[in-house]
Design a protein around this nucleic acid. Structure first.
Length: 420
RNA sequence: GGGGGAAUGUCCCGAGCGGCAAAGGGGGCGGACUGUAAAUCCGCUGGCUAAGCCUUCGUAGGUUCGAGUCCUACUUCCCCCA
């Protein structure tokens, strides 16, 4: 895919070297553009949830590298398109969200970008866009006349995202079918308004991006370019970004820095180097050095990955604190007071709180039923002591003088109860 | 417009003679082995005030001691004919 081509621009050089590139519509052409400086590129982001998750991290890194190599990053909030729903890769139609919900999500997501990009007034400072700005007020008739006539339904039917739905005999509603038209139009509009000539995205967006490129040609935009990043899976094939607790969110109020650190710490051996290149800004030389580690030494690389990745979104302090918490908890096996903590009224203890409910309250298990099952297989511990009696009551003696007790699920998930 | 199929445990796929909390996978979680890894093996994978009780098989009714299973209507999807 990227064979033979040797980029002259820093931007493509870094991207290729670090494994960010899956496909590009025109390597030499884009390379040339990047060399000229001031390359403006955008990536669209959904507003379907109040936080982005690790799956979105890769595109964010792309934008950040763009800025670091002199380009102008334009993160685009899908405030408009989220109202429609992207059919790509999904059999089920998405639930439509309310406009209010979308706006709330948008605000919440926006904060993440500020950790990765510099937003200001310099020429290559980032600019946050929202396609609702031009999509929400679209006039249907005008849109059909000016834009719609350039779309070939014949061609759209051959696109993978659509074909899959048709082949598998799944419903594809008109509103979803229009998604790609809107996204294509975005490209033209972002180019017209902000001069972006490049759209990036995950490999599943290739079809949508190329459709935009095509529309641009028909509507007289300058030459546009497409670049996609590989779909992220772990070496054992699992999709990235899922854990027991659900998605790996980037917002601290949805996933603590400690848990985020743990997510990266638990990376499979085979993925560490790839992830270091993609999700940290460490020098390639440093990563190469880490890649020579063997066997259990790889754990060092994992810690580096975890700390660097955590520092990017939660700050260096929080990352180092998470690392230290992990060291005390896992390597020394002692009680770390900086583990994620939930507070509990002391009256609840006096009233007699059973272990089952305590674990549910802590969020380590979803129900008392699950707690029972975990106890049967020896998965629950309080202060490192395996719970064998599901009717065990937690009492004052379980707490330290300062009112702390540690609950654990399995060997990895720990949490503190703090008496109030 | 006519005819024939299909919807199952709210993660997914999928079996299911009128006695069903419902086979089997995948995924996930826990245990063993390790290095907080992978692979492998074992167990679990509706809820609860738990040897009992409650709620699940597209929706609403009906037959029956008893319905995922039979009947009726409705919804959605698929196939064939026009």
């Amino acid at each position: 895919m990227t064979n033979e081509f040797t980029p002259k621009s820093d931007f493509l050089h870094v991207l290729l070297e670090r494994g960010f590139v899956h496909q590009c519509s025109d390597f030499p052409g884009l390379d040339e553009k990047a060399l000229q400086g001031g390359l403006a590129a955008y990536i669209g982001f959904d507003c379907t949830a109040p936080s982005l998750h690790v799956g979105s991290l890769l595109p964010i890194m792309l934008l950040s590298w763009l800025q670091r190599t002199g380009g102008k990053p334009l993160p685009l909030m899908g405030g408009g398109t989220t109202r429609v729903g992207d059919p790509s890769g999904k059999d089920e139609s998405r639930k439509l969200l309310s406009v209010e919900q979308i706006n709330l999500n948008k605000e919440s997501i926006r904060k993440i970008f500020e950790r990765f990009l510099k937003f200001d007034d310099a020429p290559n400072d980032a600019l946050m866009l929202d396609n609702a700005d031009w999509l929400a007020g679209l006039n249907y008739i005008e849109f059909l006349r000016d834009v719609g006539r350039h779309f070939s339904v014949n061609r759209m039917l051959t696109m993978d995202s659509v074909k899959m739905r048709l082949d598998r005999e799944h419903e594809l509603s008109f509103i979803e079918f229009n998604y790609m038209c809107l996204q294509a139009y975005d490209f033209v509009e972002v180019n017209r308004r902000y001069g972006a000539v490049l759209q990036m995205g995950g490999s599943d967006q290739w079809g949508n991006i190329v459709t935009g490129l095509d529309l641009g040609r028909r509507m007289g935009s300058p030459q546009l370019y497409a670049l996609t990043s590989p779909l992220l899976t772990t070496s054992s094939g699992a999709k990235m970004g899922k854990t027991a607790a659900g998605a790996v969110w980037l917002n601290a109020d949805m996933l603590s820095p400690y848990d985020y650190w743990q997510y990266w710490r638990n990376t499979e051996d085979a993925d560490v180097i790839r992830f270091l290149k993609l999700f940290t800004f460490l020098q390639i030389e440093e990563i190469t050095r880490l890649s020579r580690l063997q066997g259990a030494e790889i754990n060092e690389a994992k810690k580096t990955l975890a700390t660097e990745a955590t520092a990017l979104i939660h700050g260096r302090d929080a990352a180092e604190k998470a690392e230290e918490t992990a060291r005390t908890t896992f390597e020394q096996g002692t009680l770390s007071l900086t583990l994620p903590t939930i507070t509990i009224e002391s009256s609840e203890i006096t009233a007699g709180l059973g272990v089952l409910n305590a674990f549910v309250k802590a969020g380590l298990v979803a129900s008392t039923g699950e707690a029972r099952r975990q106890i049967k297989s020896g998965g629950l511990r309080i202060n490192d002591e395996i719970i064998t009696d599901e009717r065990r009551i937690i009492n004052e003696k379980d707490f330290t003088d300062s009112g702390i007790a540690k609950l654990s699920l399995g060997k990895k998930k720990h949490l503190l109860l703090q008496l109030k």
